[in-house]
Design a binder for these strands. Sequence first.
DNA 1: CGCCCGATTGAGAGGGTTCAAAGCGAGTGG
DNA 2: CCACTCGCTTTGAACCCTCTCAATCGGGCG
Lengths: 220, 220
Amino acid sequence: MASPLVRKLEHGAALSQDDRARLEEAARDVRGVGPRHDLIGEGDRPEEVHLILEGFACRYKMLPGGERQIMAFLVPGDFCDLHVAILGEMDHGIATISPCKVAYIPQRTIDELTSKHPAIARALWWATLVDEGTLREWIVNMGRRSADEQMAHLLCELLLRLESVGLAHENGFDFPVTQEELADTLGLSNVHVNRVLQQLRETGMITLTGRRLTIHDVDR
Amino acid sequence: MASPLVRKLEHGAALSQDDRARLEEAARDVRGVGPRHDLIGEGDRPEEVHLILEGFACRYKMLPGGERQIMAFLVPGDFCDLHVAILGEMDHGIATISPCKVAYIPQRTIDELTSKHPAIARALWWATLVDEGTLREWIVNMGRRSADEQMAHLLCELLLRLESVGLAHENGFDFPVTQEELADTLGLSNVHVNRVLQQLRETGMITLTGRRLTIHDVDR
DNA sequence: CGCCCGATTGAGAGGGTTCAAAGCGAGTGG
DNA sequence: CCACTCGCTTTGAACCCTCTCAATCGGGCG
């Protein structure tokens, strides 16, 4: 059973058996992290690259007024800070949402992998570009869609991403995100998030019980 | 007088005289493009990399309903599609706002530059990461700030970026962007953009006459 | 069993939208 | 040189989506 990272990268580049093995091996140093725990704070200069293996995490930024804005969800197979070495310091923080398993990969290992294995380098490139595309999609989402469209879009995005790493079955997946976290993501209030979710349930588009989310009509 | 590209990249990496010369030389094929003209459409697979030398352009996406969302402004020194070769096709379009001068650089030239000149590779890396940081900042902007804060933030960002390539003087710069384009950027209506701009003028924070914008109080 | 955090509900206020019309400035053709 | 046109800016009024504040509910955990 391949790791989420390998499963994800294979959507973007052809990896040899050797490439796959190297990737699996790089993610040896695995640590468990509790929920709602900072992996990296704004301004840090982490020595290692973090890779999510299990659980949900997020990129976020705090504002002077105390509000939080979540800028990305990180699911298994996602890197937190692949390129921070070039910029120097993090311009945002990373925190877990649910309990996570996180691989700590030394920057040097990444440098070696990318310099000696062009397919891996290309695959990592591809992954960053996909992340960037997702960021752009979020901007569209926040700028030009109503609250319910935003929510639907976000949930469908997560479904597709989790499917691509084998963590969704029958349009459903484990969803440990709080309504308040959803609000911080979409730029809405938690009250309104609640109402939007209710509406999506009433119209039969989703089922959300406890920690399990099922999307019944992905088209819209 | 260095090109905007070189001026910008020098903020992120140390370039040798040779590096600078190579960069200048790569951008030989310069073409003029009229205002409101598509440089690349969504779904295109451009053969060349586009670099803005003069004027304003933007990344944008159209929605089914006909609304447009602008996801980035491109000013002199910015690449439009540096990495599209890896993704295959554009997931958004690029259009000019004002008349522009654009350099068309063959993908091969870029590959050569980055493989033979590590400092250039690093500088281009740095530029993409800065772009990504800007995307994240926009998400924060749209999610958690009021319309007037958003507007002020956007204008200040442009001031800083234009200063960094030597196109702003005394907190003022040439600003050819339409109010409707600003609305498509911030996710507001053009009517409201107008009111916000008026308010910023009345409180003495900006002067905006014709095509020249001056920001009097950058702190806020 | 009690606590605590997250989900839910209600009511009132406000920021931003929509629709529609008028103003204004620059380029164009007569 | 003027009238015309076109595109952008400005203004007004009514509406509605979403926020804020506040209180209640509910389930998991110690």
